[in-house]
Design a protein around this nucleic acid. Sequence first.
RNA 1: GGGCGAUUAGCUCAGUUGGUUAGAGUGCUUGCUUGACAUGCAAGAGGUCACUGGUUCGAUUCCAGUAUCGCCCACCA
Length: 886
Amino acid sequence: MTEEKKSKAYDPKEVEDALYKEWLEKGFFHGNENGTLPSYSIVIPPPNVTDILHLGHALNNTIQDILIRKNRMDGFDAEWMPGADHAGIATQVVVEKQLVKEGTTRRELGREKFHERTKAWAYRNKEYILGQLKRIGCSCDWERTRFTIDEELSNAVKEVFIRLYEKGWIYRGNRIVNWCPSCQTSLSDDEVEHEDRDGHLWYIKYKMKGSDTYLMVATTRPETMLGDTGLAVNPKDQRYKKFVGKTVILPILEREIPIVADAFVDLEFGTGVVKVTPAHDPNDFEIGQRHDLEQINILNNDGTLNANAGKFKGMDRYEARKELVKELEKKGHLEKTEKYDLSVGTCYRCHNTVEPYLSEQWFVKMDQLAAPAVEAVKNGELRFHPDYWSKTYLHWMENIRDWCISRQLWWGHRIPVYYCEDCNEQIVAREMPEKCPKCEGTKLYQDEDVLDTWFSSWLWPFSTFGWPQETAMLKKFYPTKVLVTASEIIFLWVARMVMAGYEFRGKLPFNDVYIHGTVRDANGVKMSKSLGNGIDPIEIIEKHGADALRISLVLATPDGQDPWIARNTFEGGRNFVNKLYQATRFVMMRMPEGQKFDASQPPKEDLILVDSWILSRLERTIEEVNRYISEFRLNAASKSLYSFTWNDFCSWYIELIKPDKPEDPIREGSLKVAIYVLDNIIRLLHPFIPFVTEEIGRKLNECLVHQRETLTFGPWPKAGALKKDAKLEESFNSIQSVVNAVRSVRAEMNVPPGKRSDLFVRITDREMGKLLEEYQDYFRSLAKINALHIGDKIKKPGLSASAVISGAEIFIPLEGLINVEQEKGRLEKELTGLKDQLEKVSKKLANQDYLKNAPKDVIEKDRARKTDIEDRVEKLNNNLEQLLGW
RNA sequence: GGGCGAUUAGCUCAGUUGGUUAGAGUGCUUGCUUGACAUGCAAGAGGUCACUGGUUCGAUUCCAGUAUCGCCCACCA
């Protein structure tokens, strides 16, 4: 026998690609809008074309695929709409960086060429990303892939802009917006992230006009003083009352600016005097409006200072700050500098500090849009899972602010607004009009700005189905069933989709929102490209297969919490997939040639205890899995399936139906049950691990009367087909306890695993006795028993190890093997544990208040337990005493 | 500053109306190429359920407070 040992492990490479190709060819994933089956639809959260998918996407899409596949099996017409998001800022930033490397810029290239180039890049990336989804096994309807920048979706965007404009809910205005000097565009409030930074508070003296007294002002951004057009104090502030209405001289620029009284100013903070910079601070903007102060913009788009900054013109904002402080110091305007921690806004794409910046932008009025979306959660029409996210959602919705939707970018949906060069008329239209409707001038130009990326994403649940046309798709698949996403985009995306759904369809876009955790690495740090701790799902698939990737992610993701994932996380899933495969191999190997079973009906005849037990456990598992999935608790569902398959089915059931001698056949009744259970297991697991289960299903066909082409369309196992039998499960537990006790004794007494031993069982409970008598053959091999003696009058054999369990005492003769001291120690340890328990329960039962107040069944249980422990203590004592004789 | 959540074994987490001896996976220790699987089998060690009070006959579970951590929101210069 020199033959090299071949690996018998399951090899996903051999099956996954071929199966996926077959599924596609047969059109299994194509939703039929004209069919009669009820619909179950999901729209994918479109991944940004800039990001190749990471494990977070793998988790997100695995969850969606599980839900889609489960419902496709369960008789629904499943439609999973895939696609991608053009990701305005993110994409433009990437392409611009490429251009810089090539020594050019977008301005050199020109708007049209830049757009073409970006589009080509985006489409290329999109294809790669969708390819990743296919590798993961996602059962999307690929014939209907959508992209937010596609013409059809762009039309929906225009339509929505025009409708809202006509309703008066879109307006253009000069406001303070968040400006990213690096991306050179405005951002909505929700695209700004706040970071705590170490900063300073500079105390600057503003001298009163015509006097030597001065007012002291504290600021964290001294350079903005170049745009100061006033000082403000609280009207109730006695210290400064006399100064209100007077004038101070702005240091350096020497501008005269007024002192105003405004309730916004906090008496307690700083010096109680605030410098007012209407063009560079949202509060100051409002103070300025109330007191009619001038707005002076000191910044260029790129964050350098403009002509209004005098000698600081052309400097970067931070360089200017440094120089300005130096100058203030030199001229004696600076009183002191303090350390001060502050929170600064940063761009969610490039993470540079954003500047409040006065500019003309387009906004959407949100209050009326928000109303039905708030109501939906309050009346339970829209549900979050886990539920606590609804609080976050409501909090945001109830404090909603107008949405800045214009972006100073070139990549995106251009704003459908045109201006007349002659009369400045503003025209909102789908296409550029031939002439100005007001002055009939023909020199028209389109608004330079594009729309916020989210202005197309918020229409995704219906624009992808053909809206504004009333298509069959739209009728059949809108509203969708559930939205699956991480918590980061509840405001940016989820809330806005709900608002759009009500406004444009009159119906919310989905009833359930399933929020899952964000993937973290082994140290709890968020996985991201920039940190370099990300893992590419393809790497895992190459190594362990897509099934292993999927089930590992679901097993590792606690419902509602962030999973911590390392590379070896995936070994658990891989092992599980292999285990299932090996169990199948065993059962199939033992099938008599040509034998076929009918697995469509539960086996009802020729069942022994273990058979009924596994069927009862299966029924319980089916119930659990169905319940968990309906509650969006996929982690719990996957754990239930994992444990049933591995522990109940493989470790106990299969081991128990193995005949005593390997060459003997398995009892036919049990073999039927094994096939039946296996068939249910693969169907329950199919949504989680579609490839290996489909593969097993085909192997199983060999011994089934009713063969199945695929598991894709079910049937999905439903509760109720089998009998759940708690009493029987309890009986089975008794047998397990004997096996466990023997195994434990043997291991602790160092009995060589290959050596069989005799077993003496002294029965102290009739039920137990009957069970053990009847099923002795089924635990003989598990416990490695040679001669077996069972009875109520069994005497303890000479030198032996013992164990006491409920209803029986067991003895294993250990002539020549036993170490008396060791055995003594073992028994004493157990005795101590039991005595502790006995003391506790005795104390409890002696408590009159307990007896008076506790429910009867609880007391009964405790009494029975006390008796049982007393019994075991007594026997342990006897055995210990006997041992001392040796 | 406001809100939300968490704290259970070395690590990641279950524990669903308060009632046996608080569980799983993983890691660790020990022993096994056993007949489907060494991607495996068996056994074992490991927990004051963050802390302090309260309610209760009884609290990991309910309530309050404290501490620590995380997330979200926020215009205090």
